[in-house]
Design a binder for these strands. Structure first.
Lengths: 233, 233
DNA sequence: TCGAGAATATGATTGCCATCATAGAATGAG
DNA sequence: CTCATTCTATGATGGCAATCATATTCTCGA
């Protein structure tokens, strides 16, 4: 499979992380040396839930989704990580295996960072701890928010919530529309909204006919943001 | 309204918190002096979402639920806090208002702790920061887990998940059954499961007829744990 | 360029669950 | 003890969405 994009450098990816870029130059170089760039093909499982890996990851180029399998076998996506975002770090610090599965949404370059080397730096760095707490608090808040929205309401409300969340994180405002940078299939969106592919397709098709969004394969653009927001009520 | 239970002492409640009990005796007494015991009647709003309060709380006796109102006006309960548990702390540290509403599930004694006094202690205490991160990480994990279970599956699966979660936190194993210590109405459970009262009543009635649970007013006992767990599949 | 496979699309049908309506039971405050 | 109020219970009904089935379109790699 072709690697459409060149690999970024280790240090480049580390600097792009707004959690780690507070580290000293020395620590950054140290970490860069203890890391390895890895290319994951679309759909590739970066790691499986419960497996004990010696690294955590930062997305360099591309996107990784974190998902859980429910008892009934259905996959549910909890988060989508983009460039500069870290995944699997909390498991590394707590010393337990990551409870989620990480899967590449598209062809992705990611930096695998050695847990041990990071922990050596982490243990002595109070600022890093504070930042991490702040980041974790934010995620917790978002999670509760999504939880409240997802556990109630109709499918169209849930899907609109997902679109708006994605637009918030990975949307590019072109003036006439907000384009989502992530190549997501209807299946991907269905897994986030906790519904089926068919229903997702029907919903998005309907919105497209009404001119609220436009889609070209896996690329979605929000045209009528106000109306999408209204759908949440 | 009668106060069925006597108020615990400030220091007693502080010691019951497994986050704060690592503090020095001096700090604990200091905090105790900056706190005030408060009695909330059943249904009373301890604080409203978005309001800026100068304290966070620890449950002494009773239970407090954290809830959010969705755009459609429906309330969703995200967490239930029992004796020794802290709520509103993250908002205090981040310096923003708590994004959730706190409401007493039953007549409850809670300790209101002054934010500022706590922050003075917090800032200098690395161990406390680590513990808080650990606690927050755990909550995040639980939240994602609930999210995955709640955003998919049938109502009976969702309600069984809620019962099991409650049993895990507040269940007392009597040998023949697991009794939930929290007095919850069907409405309360419905708000946690993201469904309606009627459906919750039907589901629980059905389980009671089948001998899986027994209920006496607001008290629920799980009789056939295995079968309730099976319902999740 | 072409073909296999993935992704999107759409119809038909079933069934779960929200909603509305109403009634009975239990609780607790005075 | 009593009554208002809250809580539980249950029926009837309609609609939304899951499921199954089947095309059609689109992508990407050979």
């Amino acid at each position: 499979m072709p690697r459409l994009v060149d690999a970024p450098s280790n240090i480049q990816v580390l600097r792009a992380s707004n959690l780690l870029n507070s580290l000293s130059e020395e620590d950054l170089l140290n970490l860069a040396a203890a890391s390895s760039m890895y290319h994951a093909n679309r759909g590739e499982i970066v790691w499986m839930r419960g497996s004990d890996v010696s690294f955590f990851g930062i997305v360099g180029v591309g996107f990784v989704k974190m998902l859980r399998s429910t008892a009934s076998g259905q996959d549910v996506t909890t988060e989508v990580m983009g460039p500069g975002q870290i995944f699997g770090l909390l498991g590394a610090i707590e010393g337990c295996s990551c409870p989620q599965t990480a899967q590449a949404v598209c062809n992705t370059w990611l930096l695998k960072i050695d847990k041990q080397r990071f922990l050596d730096i982490y243990r002595e760095n109070v600022v890093l701890k504070e930042r991490l707490l702040s980041r974790t608090t934010g995620r917790l808040r978002t999670s509760y928010d999504m939880f409240a929205r997802m556990s109630t309401g109709h499918v169209s409300q849930r899907i609109s919530t997902i679109l708006l969340m994605l637009a918030d994180s990975y949307g590019v405002d072109t003036g006439t529309s907000i384009d989502l940078e992530i190549p997501l299939t209807r299946q991907d969106i269905a897994e986030m909204a906790g519904t089926t592919v068919e229903t997702t397709i029907r919903t998005l098709s309907n919105w497209q006919k009404r001119g609220l969004i436009s889609t070209q394969h896996k690329r979605i653009s929000i045209i009528d943001l106000g109306e999408i927001q209204n759908l949440q009520h």
